[in-house]
Design a protein around this nucleic acid. Sequence first.
RNA 1: GCUGAUGUAGCGCAGUCGGUAGCGCACGUCAUUGGUAAUGACGAGGUCACGGGUUCGAAUCCCGUCAUCAGCUCCA
Length: 644
Amino acid sequence: MFRINFGEKIFEADAPLSVYDAARGAELPMLGVLAASVGGKTVELTHVLDADADVKLLTFADAEGRHAFWHTTSHVLAQAVKRLFPEVKLAIGPAIEQGFYYDFDVKEPFRPEDLEKIEGEMKKIVKENIRLERFTLPRDEAIAFMEEREEPYKVELIRDLPEGEEISFYRQGDFTDLCAGPHLFSTGAIKAFKLTSATGAYWRGDANNKMLCRVYGVSFPTKDELKEHLDRIEEAKQRDHKKLGREMELFMFHETAPGMPYFLPRGWTLYNALLEYWRGEHRKHDYQEISGPVLSEKQLWVTSGHWDHYQDGMFVIPSDENTTYAMKPMNCPNAINVFRSRQRSYRELPIRYSQTDVIHRKEKSGELNGLFRVQQFHQDDAHIFVEESGIEAEISDIMDIAKTIYGTFGLTYTAELSTRPDDYMGDLDLWNKAEESLKTILTHKFGADGFEINEGDGAFYGPKIDLGMRDCLGRQWQMGTIQLDFQLPLNFDLKYVAEDGSMKRPVMIHRAIFGSMERFIGIITEHFKGQFPFWLAPVEVGVVPIRPDHNDYARRVVAALEDAGIRTDVDYTDQNMKNKIRHHKEQRAPYVLVLGDAEAQNGTVSVNVRGSQSSVRDVPLDGFVRRAAEMKKNHELELESEFR
RNA sequence: GCUGAUGUAGCGCAGUCGGUAGCGCACGUCAUUGGUAAUGACGAGGUCACGGGUUCGAAUCCCGUCAUCAGCUCCA
C-alpha cells in the first residue's frame, strides 16, 4: 500500500500504476492534462508509480506542460519530415521559450512551399492520434538501433551521453526518436500548430560544424489560442523600433554607411534629452565628463592590446606610408591617457571619467539590426580608476545608478555575473576577491536567485556584470555592463601615489548604463510603443490654431511653453484643424492644445491628452505650463490625468 | 561569415503568361475658414537596389554584387 498525493486529493494504491490511472482513481478531471510533475520531475502520464509520491498534474497553463506539448509537436514535425523526405537526417528538436524547433540535415534547405507540405503531413499525424511509447535501451543497442536507421547525429548524441545515464526512446507509429522526454500521451492533442520559419543553424551551435536546416514552429491545444498567439506577434511587430523610427522620423540609415545611424531632428532631440538626463544623474555621483579623439595611431591600439585581440573589429585607415590610424572601438585608452596626463594620488581616487564619444566597431555582414546592432554608436561610457579596497563600494554605486536610471523608464532588467575564464590574467587572489564582491553586491540587490552566473564567461582581464533587457519580440539584449579590469592598468603601467608614499597600480572599472545610446533608444522606443514619457517626447506639446486668425494667440502659447523649456510643434498654415490634430497624434505628442476664439479670449487652452478621445476645455494657460514644466523636471512617467 | 526571405515614387503596397509601371497616404497648386484622428479638385513625382546575361523585347527569367529582415555563429 502506498499513497499518491495530488494535493487536494490522495489516492491509495496497492499495486504499481500509471499517473493517469492514479489520477482517474482519485477522480480528478483529466481534460487538458498533458503531463505530470512527480517529486519535482516532469514525467508523462504513462509514468508508473510504485511508491509514495507527491504528484502535480500539468496543463498547458504550466510551463512544463507547454514544454511537453511543444516537444511532442517537434516529434510530429520530425515524423512528417521523415515520411515526406526519408533521406533527411535528424539532429535535435527541443521545445523552446515560445514553441519548438527541429534541426534536419537536408541536401536542399526547406523552402516555404516545403513547410506547407510538411504542415499537411503533420495534420495527418495529429488526426491519426498516434500513441507515444517510451522505451529504453542499453548503450550498445541504442547505438546499433540508430546506426541501423542511418542517423549519424543520433549516434553521436548517444556516444556523448554520460556513462550510466538511461538512454530512452519514444516511438510513435512509424517514427522513433532518441529523447529524454517527457511527452504527451498521444499526437491527437495537438489541435493547432504552425511552422513559422526555416533557417540555418550549426550542428551543436558550432560555426565549424555543418549547417543544418532548422524548422521553427509553435503549437496550442486550440485554434483560438494559436490565433491569439499569432495576433500577439503581429501586435508586437507594431512596436518595432525600425518601423516606429521611420514613422516618427527619429532616425534613418543610408546604404553608403551600413549600421551607422543618421539621427533626424526629432530623434536627435530625443537623444539629447536622454543624454541631458544621464549627465544630471552622473553629476550627482561625482563623474567628470571627458572627450577624446576618434582616430588614433595604431601604436595606441598595440599598447592597449586591441591590435592583437580586436583588429577584425576595427576600421583601420592608412594615412601615409608611415602612419596607420584606427577608429576607436572603445574609449578606454582615452580615459587612460587622461589619467596618465599627470601624477595621481590616492587622495583623488576614485576618479570617474565619463565619455559618450562616437565609436566604431566593424561587424560581420548579417549581424546588423536597426539600432540594436550597429557599427557606429555612442556608449554612455565611464572609466573609473579605483584602489583595490574601493572596488566593492564603487560597483555598488554603479548598480544604484543603474537602478535609478532604469527605474525612470519603468524598465525591467536581468543581471548576469561572468566569472574567471581559463585564460585569465592577473592575480588569482584578486580575482577571487573581486568575484566575491560582485556576488555579494548582486545578492544584496537582486537576492540569491535574482541573477545568473556564467562560469568562465568573463573577459580575460576581469569579471563582469551584464544587465540585459528584452525587445518587442522577446529577444534579450545586453544593455548595461560593469567590467573590472586588471589588465589595461598593467599594459599602460598606470600608477598612483599611495598613502605610504609607494607607487601602486589602480584597478579600472569600465561601465555603461544605457549600454549604447542607440540600442537604448531602440529598446525604449519599443518599450513605450513610441509613446515616450513627457520629458522624452521629441515634441512635448502640439499646438493647433483652429483658423489662421488664431495664430497670434498660438504664438503666445508657444512662447509661454518654450520659455518654460517645453518643446512644441505648431502648424500656422490654413490646413484643416482636424489634419493638424491628426498629425500631432500620429507623432504621439503627449499633449495637443487646440486654440480657437474661446481660448484666445479667455487665455485658456483646450487640452487633448495622448490616448484619450476627448479633450478638456478652459484650462488656464499658465496652469498648464506650470504643471507641464513640473512633470518634465520630475521625469514623470505618466501624463497628468487632470487633463483627461 | 553561414541558411532563408525581401528590395517597384518619401512611406505602405499592387503589377497575371516576358510586351516600356499603377493604387493609397504624404508632397505641390487652387478652392474651402473649420471646435477635437483624413474637405474637395487638379498636379508633380519612378534608370522597378546595382552590374552582367538570355530574349526581337526584362520590374518579371538566369548569374553576380549590395542593402535590409528572420535565424545561426560572433559580440572587449
